[in-house]
Design a protein around this nucleic acid. Structure first.
Lengths: 133, 133
DNA sequence: CCGTATCCCGCACGATACTG
DNA sequence: CAGTATCGTGCGGGATACGG
């Protein structure tokens, strides 16, 4: 049992690799931002702010309550959006971008505008690709 | 068999609805771009181009063969990257951004740089949030 | 070297129902 | 109105093996 199998060695290598990778914070943050709900919510709040919970739900097509709440919570945790509760009947909750959030929003709306601008080219490329297949 | 069942009609209506109303095509494209593998691959190709398949695999941490191939294919289909096969032994395949891809790349690397720059603030916000909990 | 094909697991996500 | 709680499932995506 002194001998180490190839599988074991591969596993150890993989674990070491994983451990190293977990420490690369930049990619993690990038992956968090590169999420479709994140970009949709942030850009929605960029256009109009503050917005109520239900406003966001109506503005963003196809989002479920769960994902809306979940994403908003994570954005709040990351300090990108601020949540304000107005205790009344019925309760009113507003969301708006923080300074940091507005900062990021510029970049994301730039991406969104890129999508609007170049959609035709992409669509064209797709049909061309599919025809050749 | 000439009659169309109510279920069929409902289905067709639903599909038409989904196709058109679900959300403007812009948001779909935005969702496609807001994918972590997409952003990682595009930004990798932005730094250095052209790159071989295995180079990309080595450069991007934690990507599987499957996701690498899959994402590259979709990017090729969307006209964002170009794939060049050099028939030799062994085969050599190079990937590089198209003009459209380079265009998008500027924006994505801006996002990546944002992530690098503001990571500390985000991390700080997180610990603050977790403490208050 | 550059993939494609296959299996399979976990969890992201949606649907639904319930509270303050 | 603004959420939580719970359950079911589809599919993203990893591991493995094989083909050109």
């Amino acid at each position: 049992m002194a001998t180490r199998t190839a599988a074991q060695q591969r596993n150890e290598a993989r674990e070491a690799y994983d451990a190293f990778m977990k420490e690369c914070p930049t990619n993690q943050l990038l992956a968090r931002i590169s999420d479709k709900w994140v970009s949709l919510i942030v850009s929605a709040l960029g256009e109009q702010s503050p917005m109520r919970y239900s406003d966001l739900g109506r503005k963003i097509p196809g989002v479920s309550q769960k994902m809306l709440t979940q994403t908003l919570r994570s954005l709040e945790r990351d300090g990108l959006v601020a949540r304000t509760v107005t205790a009344s009947v019925p309760v009113r909750v507003d969301y708006e971008l923080t300074a940091l959030g507005r900062n990021l929003c510029c970049l994301l709306t730039a991406v969104k505008e890129w999508a609007e601008k170049h959609f035709d080219e992409v669509d064209e490329a797709r049909t061309r690709y599919d025809e050749t297949a």
